[in-house]
Design a protein around this nucleic acid. Structure first.
Length: 677
DNA sequence: GACAGTATAAACATTA
DNA sequence: TTAATGTTTATACTGT
């Protein structure tokens, strides 16, 4: 009886902290505006000539770095007694450019990947093409590097032999000639990739920003990438080995076994260098780990969802899970292509992790700043682009209200890093702020189902509090159910299934759910055959909510300013990824999508309301919606208590009917999505 | 400042 | 008896 209370008491501290953290997840919006207000010019401003100049400089830098590395290498050889004075004289000129190539693989760096993601201008197809091009280049380069490495090893062996034999070899010159040829090849590849980048830039797909000097071909930065990849790989392999050590090394995927007998390219890659081996094995280990972790949920696989293969760029339709497995084994077996794709994915993940770290740091700074300034007088109220209830001093949000992009990112983008690493908003990152209460966006008539649908994967994986009230969430859970009724336990399950946030502090939020169910008249308990179920009295629900959208231009303007409520994830991601990409925020791009959001909100509410009222065959007396008259609503019949459904749909009646709102809208149960895109 | 809405916590009752 | 479920009260916070 009191045990739950007891557990709640125990978890109070963490619950408060957790709640605080949840309220913060739109803070990146502020950072987004901050980024925009920096006055940094779009990268597209950088001309091709300037880019070429920068690349030349960077090539020179690369040469210098390579020379230094060579010197270090030679010093090491001197120490180890392997050095040949003659070779020492001859080798540098040969090794330098090759070393450059070895140290600076000219693939798209995470920074460049970030740029592309920042721009938000690439369609998935474009991205796929880009990735494939990069994969091809990477493979070519790997092969060249591999071959060169072998040549160099041969050369060293020959030199050693010749030192012992005291001979002056002709073979050395031949090998050196070969090396020179490969150097030239590598340089050509570099140039090719530079041209590729340049063409991307010219197409507007990739931008070089003045404020990011390390972007295109920064040798040192690139030199760090393999190290980081290696580190990432260590994490992966350690986790994998840990799993194996526990005896769970049986796999449901053939990929694992093919890994062991790996095909030639991957095998050589394994030998070649740690980075290659990393990637080569990762492409195998990751599915295996996933397969292991999902063995108990045979129809749940990270690469499979909604009947579609989620392998990057695949999207093949698989009827069922078995066919998906067949598809996975056949189409995504261990080969060069899959390996390269995994490598690219690694880079994406790594970049996102870097971005995560950066944003966490920024968040800390923001929180510190806001905490310091919390006593400062408030400026004129601005529509906060925050879902959270963080009591921001208005100084933090005094930037332009049109700071949020309307082009949403796909919610799947942030999932991987979020699930693999700590959430963007960690509880620890919020501790310094003190008690924070949430303010939820459903007060702004955000289409909850749209938001949830769009950010479903995000909410499922990131411990981010959904920006909706408990009442809205409960309603959504009930309305999503086939019969529009759920037991309490089913509501619980929906919460935990849909939101990672609600997988913690169960006592707290479950109590809140029960409290809301009891408190709000809109939730009606119905005795059913299988027990008590909860239904939604949509009329009561609409009564409960403030009718903010009434055609008032100021409200619409407010909606426009705060339309980021519709996609908190997108806002956060945009802020996270888009730091300086101004072109997305042009005034012209703000117009219709905003109206679309508004329309979506109205449609959403209308749809939900009318589903219920229609299904109850109730006649909403004084104020029938004009939209209802114009647009027939297709709803399912549902067995609800007729006495619960009556009264006007105030939201609908007060909403202006804009012709933009309802083009061929199919008022099904499916959430509205397209208005976000 | 009043008020409404909401979150959170807690106590208590009921029921399976 | 226990856990789940449901109700109610209290308090605090936020926005209007």
């Amino acid at each position: 009886m009191m045990q739950e209370s007891g557990t709640e008491t125990k978890s109070n501290g963490s619950a408060i902290q957790n709640g605080s953290s949840g309220g913060n997840h739109l803070l990146p919006c502020a950072s987004l505006r901050e980024g925009r207000s920096n006055g940094e010019t779009p990268a597209a401003d950088a001309g091709a000539a300037e880019l070429a100049h920068v690349q030349q400089q960077q090539q020179q830098q690369a040469l210098q770095v390579a020379r230094q590395l060579l010197l270090q290498q030679q010093q090491q050889q001197q120490v180890s007694g392997l050095k040949s004075p003659k070779r020492n004289d001859k080798q540098p000129a040969l090794q330098v450019p090759v070393s450059v190539a070895m140290m600076t693989p000219q693939v798209i760096t995470p920074q460049q990947m970030q740029q592309i993601l920042q721009q938000q201008v690439l369609s998935p197809q474009q991205l796929q093409v880009l990735l494939q091009q990069q994969q091809a280049l990477m493979l070519q380069q790997q092969q060249l590097q591999e071959f060169y490495k072998k040549q160099q090893e041969q050369l060293q062996l020959q030199l050693l032999q010749q030192q012992h034999a005291g001979k002056q070899p002709k073979e050395q010159q031949q090998v050196a000639t070969q090396q020179l040829a490969f150097q030239q090849q590598l340089l050509q590849m570099q140039q090719l990739q530079q041209q590729h980048l340049l063409s991307l830039q010219r197409q507007g797909l990739l931008t070089i920003q003045p404020g990011q000097p390390a972007l295109p071909l920064q040798p040192l930065a690139q030199g760090m990438i393999p190290t980081e990849l290696q580190q990432l790989w260590k994490e992966v392999t350690s986790a994998h080995s840990a799993e194996e050590s526990t005896g769970s090394n049986h796999s449901s995927l053939d990929l694992t076994t093919t890994c062991v007998s790996s095909s030639a390219p991957s095998k050589t890659s394994l030998i070649m260098n740690p980075h290659a081996s990393t990637n080569g094995q990762l492409s195998v280990h990751t599915p295996k780990r996933e397969s292991l972790s999902h063995e108990e949920h045979p129809h749940s696989h990270p690469l499979y969802g909604h009947g579609v293969c989620k392998w990057p760029g695949c999207e093949a339709v698989c009827e069922d899970f078995q066919s998906f497995l067949k598809h996975l084994n056949s189409e995504h077996a261990l080969d060069d292509r899959s390996t390269a794709q995994c490598r690219v994915q690694m880079q994406v993940v790594q970049q996102l992790e870097l971005q995560l770290a950066k944003d966490k740091e920024r968040l800390q700074a923001m929180m510190t700043h806001l905490h310091v300034k919390s006593t400062e007088p408030k400026a004129a109220p601005q529509p906060l682009n925050l879902v959270s209830s963080v009591t921001l001093s208005k100084s933090a949000s005094e930037a332009s209200p049109q700071s949020l992009p309307h082009t949403p990112t796909t919610p799947t983008a942030p999932i991987t890093p979020v699930t693999q690493g700590p959430s963007v908003i960690t509880t620890t990152s919020m501790h310094t702020v003190g008690p924070i209460r949430r303010r939820y966006s459903d007060k702004y008539n955000v289409p909850i189902s749209s938001d949830i649908a769009q950010n479903q994967e995000f909410y499922k994986n990131a411990e981010v509090r959904p920006p909706f009230t408990y009442a809205s969430l409960i309603r959504q859970a009930i309305l999503e159910s086939p019969e529009k009724q759920l037991t309490l336990n089913e509501i619980y399950n929906w919460f935990t299934r849909m939101f990672a946030y609600f997988r913690r502090n169960a006592a707290t939020w479950k109590n809140a759910v029960r409290h809301n169910l009891s408190l709000h008249k809109c939730f009606v308990r119905v005795e059913n055959v299988k027990g008590a179920v909860w239904t939604v009295d949509e009329v009561e629900f609409q009564k409960r909510r403030p009718q903010k959208i009434s055609g008032n231009p100021s409200l619409i303007k407010n909606m426009q300013s705060s339309h980021a409520y519709c996609t908190p994830l997108n806002a956060a991601l945009q802020a996270s990824m888009a730091e300086n990409s101004i072109p997305l925020y042009t005034t012209a791009s703000m117009g219709n999508p905003t109206l679309g959001n508004l329309a979506s909100a109205i449609r959403e509410e209308l749809n939900g309301a009318m589903e219920h009222t229609n299904s109850n065959e109730s006649d909403s007396s004084p104020g029938r919606s004009p939209m209802q008259a114009v647009h027939p609503v297709h709803v399912k019949e549902e067995p609800l208590d007729p006495e619960e459904a009556e009264g006007p749909l105030s939201l609908v009646t007060t909403a202006n009917h804009s012709p933009d709102f309802d083009h061929d809208r199919d008022y099904e149960d499916e959430p509205v999505n397209e208005d976000m895109e």
